[in-house]
Design a protein around this nucleic acid. Sequence first.
RNA 1: GUGGCUGUAGCUCAAUGGCAGAGUACCUGACUGUGGAUCAGGGUGUUGCGGGUUCAAAUCCCGUCAGCCACCCCA
Length: 420
Amino acid sequence: MEKVKTLRGFRDIVGEELDKFKLIESVSQKHVKRLGFTEIEIPILEKTDLFVRSIGDTTDIVEKEMFTFTDLGGDSLTMRPEATAGVVRAYLQSGLYVKQRVSKLFTMGPMFRHEKPQKGRFREFHQIDVEVFGVSDPLIDAELLWMIHLILNDLGVQSYTMEVNSVGCPLCRESFRRVLVEYFEERKDALCDDCTRRLDRNPLRIFDCKNSQCIDVSRNSPLLFNCLCEGCREHLDGFLKHIDAFGVAVVMNKRLVRGLDYYTKTVFEVTSDDLGAQKAFIAGGRYDNLVEEMGGPKTPGTGFAIGVERLALLTQTQSLQKSPTYFFAYLGERAKEYLVPFLRSFAEAGFSLNYSYDGRSLKSQMRYADSLNSDFVFILGDDEIGKDIVVLRNMKTKAQYELMLDPLTLPGEAMKLSGE
RNA sequence: GUGGCUGUAGCUCAAUGGCAGAGUACCUGACUGUGGAUCAGGGUGUUGCGGGUUCAAAUCCCGUCAGCCACCCCA
């Protein structure tokens, strides 16, 4: 019989790796909540139309990477490929835009994209998503970067670069697009096949190409940075000024663009060279027209997403200070009778007590206790029972103590000894 | 989606057509009831899966699944 395995790009997350995920989530949660964000959970499954409208129908995500299927009622449904669309939907549906002038929301959970898996890239992956509605001041954009800085610091992540840019508003972007297309049309022969295609669909993305010839061509191309309208220009200046005040180091990358259609003005990307090809592990930006496009009132928005799997690759597991752990080694049936009383008493005291189920030789039980990194081992056999005592061994110092064989008082007695 | 590499013991890997092996981990003993060290012993396996070629396949061929690397794209 063939074993059932996880789907391609899907996996189980277990043990230490899961601990790391939880650490990343709790550290992020701590900082985000401190800065006044409210946690929200939104459905994993939504109507396909939600993502098509928000992400853009010509983006790769929508065109070929969504897990989309028809449900029993005939509706087209999609497993969320990102969180922003759903958060905007929830914001509008719950009427938050009426109740509060500014909404700061965050959510964490799995996202799904039908891509070819690689390191740091899965079909089911996790994001921590942060969104702000109702603030047009670039101060909030800077604040978001500062928050990222705090989270990464707290996690001990050192080697990363924050790149920032502005992609302008639809107005300056459209006029720039014409200038750019004109420039590349004249040099079309030097571009790779992908870029020739991009020229029609999304010329800004030519900046992303890794082909050396294309890099040469785009090196001298006009930049949106120089074509920003007055409003976008002001916003960018303000953003950079506030970044400076927060003391966060960023790099201006005038060629930084984003793959989702909804971004306006501020965009940013946090990258690390330790990640290989998938080097961006946090990215985001402003989307001042999305809420309106989704049928709500004109409301500015800005936010970012953390790729948890990628951040986990950069996070060292920190050795947390643990309370001592105990192990109960028993020899023979009479000693085993004490196992359950020990367990109950130690659980009551909030202590960790491990034991072996098969009660083999003392040597193998000791070995097992050692492999579990137990700090103390109780040893109980007929000899001790006869004397109404139990032996407690300190595994680090090898000191042994004889304690009264009374499960109720033992946690307290053991704690006194472990304090020494 | 495109191109390339890989898949053998829990883990890291060897075996290029001829008895599936090593290191490590694990178990047992030396040590009657005391962990990490040492010594001795133990292989725990559907060679990813399915077919084909062959007297004989981990090895060659086809297919398939999965992983890795790069591209595309993205967190």
